[in-house]
C-alpha cells in the first residue's frame, strides 16, 4: 500500500533522487565510532542539531500557553508550570535544552578547531558555523527575558546597559532593542519575543541549511 502511494508520487515528481542524495553515501572509517571509538567526537555536531530540533518543537508548543505581555507573561508561565499536565517537563526541555545546545555547540566547535578542519576548502563553512554560534547566544539572551521574572528583568537590564555603552550608536542601539529609551517594559518584552521566536530562528534555519549543504558538497574532512 505505502509502496504504491510512493510509486504514484515518484512517477510524477521524481522524488527518489532527492532522498537518495541524502541517504546513499558511504561513511568513511575514520568518523565511525564502531571502528575507532575516539571518533565519537564526530557526534557532537549531530547531537547539537538533535537538541535544536527539540528546542524548536518544545518552543512551538510553549507558545500555545505563553503570552508576551508584562501583565500576563509571568502568570502564563506560572500557570503552565503548575496547572498544565507536563507543562513543567516541556518548559524544562526548553530551559535545559538551551544550556545543552550551548555545551554541544562548544564541543563541536572545539573538535573542528583542534582538528584544523576549517582549513581550505572549508573556510566558509567554519564562518557559517561561528555565525550559528552567535545566533544561538542571541537566542539564549532574548529567551531569557520572556518569563518576566526578576532574573529575566534584571539580567536584561544589564544587557541593555552594555548595549548603551557602545560608542556612537549606543543609545540608539539600546532603544532599538528595548523599544523605549528609558523603560524596560512592555515594548521590550514584545521586541524580545519577536526576535526570539521569528527573527533569530529564521536566521538559524538559513544558516543551518547552508551549513548542511556545504557539508554535503565538500564531504567530511579526512583523517588527521
Amino acid at each position: 500500500m505505502l509502496q504504491k502511494i510512493y510509486d504514484w508520487i515518484d512517477e510524477r515528481i521524481d522524488i527518489t533522487p532527492i532522498w537518495r542524495d541524502i541517504a546513499d553515501h558511504e561513511v568513511p572509517e575514520h568518523v565511525n565510532p564502531a571502528h575507532h571509538f575516539s571518533a565519537f567526537v564526530y557526534c557532537f555536531g549531530g547531537l547539537t542539531f538533535f537538541v535544536v530540533v527539540i528546542q524548536i518543537l518544545s518552543g512551538m508548543f510553549l507558545t500555545m500557553y505563553y503570552v508576551p505581555d508584562i501583565e500576563n507573561a509571568w502568570k502564563s508561565v506560572y500557570y503552565l508550570q503548575t496547572e498544565v499536565a507536563h507543562g513543567q517537563i516541556v518548559r524544562g526541555m526548553h530551559h535545559w535544552g538551551a544550556s545543552v545546545v550551548i555545551v554541544m555547540l562548544l564541543l563541536h566547535t572545539l573538535r573542528v578547531f583542534f582538528q584544523g578542519a576549517y582549513k581550505k576548502p572549508r573556510e566558509l563553512n567554519w564562518m557559517v558555523g561561528v555565525l550559528i554560534f552567535f545566533v544561538m547566544l542571541g537566542l539564549g539572551f532574548t529567551g531569557y527575558l520572556l518569563p518576566w521574572d526578576n532574573k529575566a528583568y534584571f539580567a536584561t537590564q544589564v544587557g541593555l546597559e552594555i548595549a548603551d555603552q557602545v560608542p556612537l550608536i549606543g543609545p540608539e542601539l539600546k532603544t532599538l532593542l528595548a523599544g523605549d529609551p528609558e523603560i524596560v517594559g512592555a515594548q521590550t518584552l514584545t521586541r524580545f519575543f519577536a526576535i526570539h521566536v521569528f527573527f533569530l530562528p529564521g536566521a538559524l534555519f538559513a544558516l543551518l541549511a547552508v551549513h548542511f549543504i556545504l557539508i554535503r558538497r565538500q564531504g567530511i574532512s579526512g583523517p588527521l
Binding site: V53, I54, L57, S58, F61, M64, Y65, L80, V84, A85, H86, G87, I89, V90, M93
Partner: peptide
C-alpha cells in the same frame, strides 16, 4: 520521547 510530553501538554484543556 520528544513529542509525548508536548502533545500531552497541548491536549491538556481537552482532558
Amino acid at each position: 520521547g520528544i513529542l509525548a510530553p508536548m502533545l500531552r501538554m497541548a491536549i491538556d484543556p481537552v482532558l
